[in-house]
């Protein structure tokens, strides 16, 4: 069996303690949460930290709460140590952000989801990682704490590219804040070779409807197709319009043009572009349907 190279292990007792440990042990130290991204890399000896700082005791970061915060209004605050299973089983999430449920159902498998955390997923920043897209689409804010205090980063600021985030070596992602919008719906759909596999491609969308049934706010994001930002190209087309199949088709077309996938064992470029198109249409349809369902007098 594959075995990691030797390292020293220390368990952090609090966020401050974790930050102090990161500071003390320097660049060759790594934080481990669920460990389901890092430990396999260590077993392959592609990652060889000298120090592993275990933050599983930071129960202070395992929470989900609806809150009102200055400048953000009503938000759902998700502690970085919240496990995937907790997200999947949360009634608040089910009600507010069905996109998270859609995504969580297809992230790895139920047992991995018992260990894996939202913070770990976002910090790994794998281009095929589903929650990154979800947080982009929901326009989440990453709360990062370091020796100099806390900073708030938009997902675009947080997520710098494949496997790269703005979290410095001596910082910790501690929370994701997701703004709560009324009259909204969201959805995520992924194509995978088999359950539990990384995405061939996936798409997520969040839609807010105005009182007249037109789209007042929309975000579309993609997974595993070479685009680590929201597909801003579609927003101008969709906002202010009544949701129609024709509109979704146009959004899908624009999305497939915006993405930049690579061919691999999961499929050729044109297939992935096609999926960007197809899945965008599907998630917009579902998100609009869900938004409409939250407003009783609008049906589409």
């Amino acid at each position: 069996m594959q075995i990691p190279a030797p390292f020293e292990y220390v368990r952090a007792s609090s966020v401050d303690n974790a930050l102090a440990l990161l500071d003390r042990h320097g660049p060759e130290s790594r934080v481990v949460a669920g460990g389901h991204s890092l430990l396999p890399m260590m077993k392959l000896r592609l990652a060889r930290p000298d120090w592993l700082i275990d933050i599983n005791d930071l129960f202070e970061l395992d929470y989900l709460l609806v809150d009102t915060v200055p400048n953000n209004g009503r938000v759902l605050r998700i502690g970085a140590m919240t496990r995937h299973t907790t997200l999947l089983e949360s009634d608040d999430i089910k009600r507010l952000f069905p996109i998270v449920i859609d995504a969580e159902r297809v992230i790895a498998d139920p047992i991995v989801r018992n260990r894996g955390t939202i913070g770990g997923s976002l910090c790994q920043a794998d281009p095929a990682e589903d929650l990154s897209t979800v947080c982009h689409v929901l326009e989440g804010v990453a709360v990062v704490r370091g020796p100099a205090g806390e900073r708030m980063l938009s997902m675009a600021e947080f997520h710098r590219g494949p496997y790269e985030t703005a979290v410095a070596q001596n910082e910790l992602l501690i929370e994701v804040r997701v703004p709560i919008r009324d009259d909204s719906g969201s959805a995520y759909e992924k194509v995978e070779r088999r359950i539990g596999d990384w995405a061939v491609a996936a798409a997520g969308a969040s839609v807010t409807l105005a009182a007249d049934g037109t789209i007042s706010h929309v975000a579309v994001g993609l997974t595993a197709v070479g685009l680590d930002r929201n597909v801003t190209e579609v927003e101008a087309v969709l906002v202010g319009q009544a949701p129609t199949e024709q509109l979704f088709v146009e959004a899908g077309r624009l999305t497939s043009l915006a993405c930049d996938p690579l061919a691999d064992q999961r499929g050729p470029v044109d297939y992935k572009r096609h999926l960007a198109d197809e899945l965008t249409r599907r998630v917009l349809r579902a998100a609009c349907r869900r938004a409409a369902a939250s407003i009783s007098d609008i049906t589409i």
Binding site: V191, R193, V200, R266, G267, P268, Y271, H274
Partner: peptide, 8 residues
């Protein structure tokens, strides 16, 4: 018959 190969 993976999704990609079926689509192709």
């Amino acid at each position: 018959c993976t999704p990609a190969r079926v689509w192709e």
